[in-house]
């Protein structure tokens, strides 16, 4: 079945207009540690969607799409998952030496609509757009590709888990994300669907927004090779985020919204 045709057909049948919705809030995962030593190593990870960083004050991050890759590239199961009012939590046992990549990768379609005067949200696959009630009004649909990542290293850093998949926005670290120190140059590459992402706006925000008057965003742009270079002045946990949009590949007259975010720890020397 042709997904694009189906989606368009469905929407036309619904008689709906399409538009892009700006993404609100900040989604993140926050690990209890990014650098570990020893033998029986565990981390616990908070996952939330919030305004301020890194505080739980709005919504938990769903854990359905969380994937964990071990240093050898093997999938690892999250343990003790729980979702509360403001945050989700899970644990990871680090049984291998090297770098683990944790991610929540969401691909699909996002819709908002009004039904009987009530605002609704819908997430799913393009093929399932037909499940939006026919009586829905004001339907706004977009294709999404959202990736949230965290890196954690036991022992020496490794890079097996950095192999790009070719889907959405991906980080290709030149500087290892668990080897970030103040005063040292850092270089990151970004890809969109496997191709260097030139001119991508990237924002970095340090944790502890609650205790200062200004957010203090570090605003950067990738160069022609999709590369970003910076030097951190202050240590801390940083939230890196970038987003872009292009025409949807599966929905006619709709946008595809891509975003990437990561939580990075910068240590003082």
């Amino acid at each position: 079945m042709n997904v694009k045709q189906l989606a368009v057909g469905t929407l036309m049948a619904l008689g709906l207009g399409l538009s892009v919705e700006a993404q609100a809030h900040r989604a993140w995962m926050l690990p209890s540690a990014t650098v570990l030593s020893g033998e029986n190593s565990w981390i616990t990870v908070d996952a939330a969607i919030s305004n301020s960083l890194f505080y739980f004050e709005h919504h938990p991050l769903g854990l359905n799409n969380v994937q964990i890759l071990s240093p050898n590239g093997k999938p690892v199961a999250a343990q003790n998952p729980a979702t509360g009012k403001y945050r989700s939590v899970f644990d990871v046992e680090l049984s291998e030496e090297g770098t683990y990549t944790l991610q929540s990768h969401n691909q699909g379609v996002f819709a908002r609509y009004t039904l009987d005067g009530e605002a609704k949200r819908w997430r799913g696959k393009a093929a399932d757009l037909g499940t939006i009630p026919a009586a829905a009004e004001d339907v706004k649909v977009s294709e999404i590709d959202t990736r949230i990542q965290v890196f954690v290293t036991k022992g020496a850093p490794t890079d097996v888990t950095f192999v790009p998949t070719g889907h959405g926005i991906e980080l290709v670290p030149e500087t290892h994300p668990n080897d970030l120190f103040t005063g040292e140059p850092v270089a990151f590459g970004f890809l969109i669907d496997g191709q260097p992402a030139a001119g991508l706006d990237v924002v970095l925000i340090r944790d502890g927004i609650r205790y200062r008057d200004q957010v203090g965003e570090i605003e950067l742009m990738t160069d022609a090779q999709g590369k970003l270079t910076l030097t951190f002045d202050e240590p801390g946990m940083y939230w890196l985020e970038t987003e872009t949009e292009q025409d949807s590949r599966v929905l006619k007259d709709a946008k595809r919204r891509l975003s990437y975010s990561a939580t990075l720890e910068v240590l003082p020397l």
């Binding site: 650098v35 570990l36 030593s37 020893g38 033998e39 290293t153 022992g155 020496a156 120190f181």
Partner: peptide, 22 residues
């Protein structure tokens, strides 16, 4: 027991980076 003391070696963070982690 179980070499638990190595858990905190990373807190020697300069040395851990320069040498300990390998």
């Amino acid at each position: 027991k179980d070499n638990e003391g190595t858990k905190w070696l990373k807190d020697l963070r300069l040395w851990w980076r320069r040498s300990g982690r390998s």
